Computed example of a mutant assay.
Amino acid sequence: MNIDALEKMLAKGNDSAMLRFGLGKAYLDDKNIEAAIEHFKHCVAQDPDYSAAWKLLGKSHLQMDDKASAESAWQSGLEVAMRKGDKQTEKEITVFLKKLKK
């Protein structure tokens, strides 16, 4: 789905964590990092257990060269992934955090 279609859904009041994640991912892919961050933040505010959103929020912050915010998002995502048993996201975030600290 393209950004315009997702934005229309949001404008109609269909706000949800999944929609915000989709918008965040679409904007991230489109290199509109500020918009991606905004939507990922809304996503995790609506569903703090959305570990994939925390992961991409961290990646977005890193692309803006905001290492502290990236680390914070990834720490939150790591806690969620570990609690939920989301092993793949846990592994990915662990790698991101190790690279960040180098």
Rank of each mutant, 00 (worst) to 15 (best):
Q88W: 01
L78P: 01
D65L: 08
Q63C: 05
H61M: 09
M64Q: 14
K55Y: 12
E92Q: 11
A73T: 06
K91T: 01
L10P: 01
F40Y: 15
A52V: 11
L6G: 09
A11F: 11
S16E: 02
K84W: 00
P48T: 04
A52T: 11
W54I: 03
G13W: 06
A81D: 08
K8A: 09
A73R: 02
K67E: 08
D4L: 03
H39Q: 15
D86P: 00
M1T: 12
S72T: 12
Q46S: 14
S51Q: 06
N32W: 06
K99P: 00
E90H: 06
A68R: 04
A36H: 10
I37H: 09
H39E: 14
A26L: 06
E38S: 11
D66E: 13
E79M: 13
L56Q: 13
L57C: 05
L57M: 10
C43R: 07
V95F: 05
F40G: 04
A35R: 15
G58P: 00
Q88E: 10
P48S: 14
M1Q: 12
N2V: 09
Q88I: 10
P48N: 15
L19W: 03
M1S: 15
D30M: 02
A68L: 00
E38D: 11
H39W: 10
N14D: 13
A5Q: 13
S69F: 00
G13A: 05
G13F: 02
S76K: 07
A45D: 10
Y27G: 05
G58T: 03
A5R: 11
E92D: 13
I33T: 15
E71D: 05
N14C: 01
A36N: 12
S72V: 01
D29I: 03
V44S: 03
L28P: 12
I37E: 12
D15Y: 06
L6K: 12
I93Y: 03
Q88A: 07
K67D: 04
L19H: 08
D66Y: 03
K67S: 07
A68K: 09
